[in-house]
């Protein structure tokens, strides 16, 4: 008797579960079709981003104040503990941040990152401006082809493109073969694993980011202004410097930010193309984390990077946006 009874109770349970499930799906459906459904639309992405972006971010902040404990799993100290008399203690270790300011290694990493990002942004601007200008002035059909050609590399793997550059820049690579073949240099130039290679690499990787906003900006430029200037006797260079360039400043700023911000935190390119002394923040965090297993230090470096570079850039962009909006009004 026991067996069928448990069977029937199990069956009842499943029945219950299924009817409940369908009832709840019905409720959910009604909920979704009512105006309250928008809260579901809102809540799903919000919950995901809070759980997997905001909370982790706060965790990094928290762990940056812990101290490293080697051998432990995970390798950092508990900040909230109990003292011997049972009182709750809260330990803040700011050793990581102190080290950040005093150890020349980290200061060098920050300076390097800023220099790499700045020089590469300028490189993108110099290379990208003529392309953007040419695209903006091309016929619609040519413009579409030229734009696709700019965007296509952006879709292909940046890791593989960094790898492709190694083949070009190596001592016995294509560039040196070309230079020596043309008789420009006698001995191969050492480019790979120098700072120059990092500049070339970041410029190469982020060039589409500069060209796209610049093109959008230059396409809105009123080219009759240039014709008027030419009619009035201005030389092309003068009208470029006094009309085109000032009017394209918003595009230049947008493109520069798109290149500069990711370039500061870049890991792959300095690591593959730069020399061992091309220490950047990205590499510093990577080494602290994977080689030294000092998670609090890695977190402190990351927080400092955000506070020193990313946040000021965002504030700058915000102010710029507000100013442009003000101009439009």
């Amino acid at each position: 008797m026991a067996r069928p009874a448990s069977h029937s109770s199990l069956w009842q349970l499943w029945h219950q579960v299924f009817t409940d499930l369908f009832r709840w799906i019905g409720v959910l459906g009604r909920e979704l079709s009512s105006s309250r459904g928008r809260w579901v639309v809102l809540a799903l992405p919000m919950l995901w981003l809070v759980a997997f972006f905001l909370v982790p971010f706060l965790l990094v902040l928290k762990i940056s104040f812990a101290s490293a404990v080697s051998g432990a799993q995970p390798p950092y100290s508990d900040m909230i503990g109990t003292a011997e008399d049972g009182a709750l203690t809260l330990r803040f270790a700011i050793a990581g941040y102190q080290l950040l300011l005093t150890d020349s290694l980290y200061v060098t990493a920050y300076v390097n990152s800023l220099v790499f990002a700045t020089v590469s942004t300028l490189g993108c601007l110099v290379l990208g401006y003529p392309i953007a200008y040419g695209i903006a002035r091309a016929s619609p059909a040519a413009r579409a082809v030229l734009l696709v050609l700019v965007i296509l590399p952006f879709w292909t793997s940046s890791l593989l493109r960094a790898y492709a550059l190694i083949g070009i820049l190596r001592t016995n690579g294509l560039l040196n073969q070309l230079l020596m073949g043309l008789g420009i240099t006698d001995a191969p130039l050492v480019i790979l694993h120098t700072d120059l290679a990092v500049y070339i690499g970041i410029t190469y990787n982020y060039l589409p980011f500069m060209i796209m906003p610049l093109t959008a900006n230059l396409m809105r430029l009123d080219f009759t202004l240039l014709e008027a200037a030419a009619d009035l006797g201005a030389r092309p260079l003068t009208s470029f410097l006094r009309i085109t360039l000032p009017l394209s400043v918003p595009g230049i700023v947008a493109g520069s930010l798109l290149v500069f911000i990711p370039a500061v935190g870049e890991f792959v390119i300095p690591d593959l193309l730069g020399g061992p002394d091309a220490l950047t923040i990205g590499r510093a965090i990577w080494t602290e984390f994977f080689s030294n297993r000092d998670w609090p230090m890695a977190s402190a470096v990351a927080i400092a990077m955000l506070a020193l570079i990313v946040v000021p850039m965002l504030v700058f962009e915000y102010v710029q946006d507000k100013r442009l909006e003000g101009d439009r009004r």
Partner: peptide, 18 residues
């Protein structure tokens, strides 16, 4: 919009710590 400007190392580190 924040993850768009967040350096990759930061995204990776924070996800792992979570």
């Amino acid at each position: 919009s924040a993850p768009l400007v967040m350096p990759e190392v930061m995204l990776g580190l924070s996800a792992l710590l979570l």
